[in-house]
């Protein structure tokens, strides 16, 4: 038997879903009005890396020196091996050990 879903849960999830989907589709549809070369293109090329870097920096800094070590080791492993999972586990191992100590 299915659990009952409350109306306000449906509204909360529905609004969150509309917001998220509008941003995804809006970005895709508006992009075709953006210029394809020159400065704008250079900006768009730099954007994915800059965005991901911005996403991780506070998380690394929050862990202090060990966080920076974990970040460097993760980067080194993925650079040498091209293996994202191994790189992730290496970074997590550093934090696991740091928290044991």
């Amino acid at each position: 038997m299915l659990p009952v879903v409350e109306t306000q849960v449906l509204i909360a999830i529905g609004l969150a879903a509309i917001a998220t989907y509008s941003l995804r589709l809006g970005g895709l549809l508006l992009a075709s009005r953006f210029p394809k070369a020159g400065r704008f293109r250079r900006g768009m090329d730099a954007l994915p890396g800059a965005l991901l870097f911005s996403l991780v920096v506070p998380g690394l800094v929050a862990e202090g020196l060990w966080g920076l070590c974990a970040g460097l080791l993760t980067a080194l492993v993925v650079w040498r091996s091209k293996n994202t999972l191994a790189a992730m586990l290496a970074g997590m191992l550093v934090i696991y050990l740091a928290r044991l100590a």
Binding site: D45, A46, P48, G49, L52, F53, L55, V56, G59, L60, E63, G67, A70, G71, T74, A75, V77, V78, W79, T84, A87, M88, L89, A90, G91, M92, L93, I95, Y96, R99
Partner: peptide, 21 residues
């Protein structure tokens, strides 16, 4: 305790390195 909360930061660090131009 198992650094599970760090999984997110670690995987996105690896992805960012892959996007380095």
């Amino acid at each position: 305790k198992y650094a599970l909360d760090f999984a997110f930061t670690a995987v996105f660090t690896a992805l960012a390195v892959g996007l380095w131009q």
